[in-house]
């Protein structure tokens, strides 16, 4: 039974990822919470980076496990770009991002605009394709795709002008340590 509404609300990519991971891969919730400390652009830059270098005192395994959160974030970003005017958007985003960097301001979260049923179907297909490519079982891929659909439909709409702040930590912070997000470092 198709429960999706005719047209979804505008939602932030990170909210969808958070919701889907909580549903389908709760073991990755800590990973997502960690990713939420970064802006969308920073997250995407880190997820797209191949190889994180070998630390001399690392464990030494080069294995990469197929995690749901990174896969989903990349797919949703890809879908979001497809659904917007990529060329204009990219140019505008590029200069805006540079200006934000100079001013050390955090970028607003990426928003998926309200989707038609056809567009929701396209997103679902993209999720299924990416999951298959990552080697996830079909049933698991379907579960994730369904969860994405539900998240797009049910997630509370995100105001387009309000930036989403990173989730506040629930664990007590160490008083003698500087806040990890204060430095505003750049990706390597």
């Amino acid at each position: 039974m198709d429960t999706q509404p005719e047209c979804s609300s505008a939602v932030a990519v990170r909210d969808v990822v958070r919701r889907v991971v909580a549903d389908c891969a709760p073991e990755e919730s800590v990973v997502v919470e960690g990713l939420l400390h970064y802006s969308d652009a920073e997250v995407l830059a880190r997820l797209r980076r191949r190889g994180h270098g070998r630390d001399p005192l690392g464990f030494g395994l080069a294995d990469v496990v197929p995690l749901v959160a990174p896969l989903l974030w990349l797919v949703l970003e890809s879908a979001r770009q497809k659904l917007t005017d990529a060329a204009v958007d990219q140019a505008a985003r590029g200069s805006a991002a540079l200006w934000r960097r100079i001013r050390r301001r955090k970028a607003p979260p990426e928003i998926i605009p309200p989707l038609t049923r056809e567009q929701q179907a396209m997103v679902r297909r993209m999720v299924l394709d990416a999951a298959a490519e990552a080697g996830l079982p079909e049933s698991r891929a379907k579960q994730i795709a369904d969860s994405v659909g539900a998240a797009l439909a049910l997630t509370k709409p995100t105001p387009l002008t309000e930036p989403t702040a990173p989730t506040e930590p629930s664990a007590p912070t160490e008083p003698d340590e500087p806040h990890g997000g204060a430095a505003g470092g750049e990706p390597r």
């Binding site: 800590v30 919470e33 930590p169 629930s170 664990a171 160490e174 990890g180 997000g181 204060a182 390597r188």
Partner: peptide, 19 residues
């Protein structure tokens, strides 16, 4: 341990269980 590379686990929601 710069922010661009990693985040302190104690600042992450749910990180306390891992720690």
């Amino acid at each position: 341990q710069r922010r661009g590379r990693c985040v302190r686990l104690s600042l992450v929601h749910g990180g306390a269980e891992v720690a």
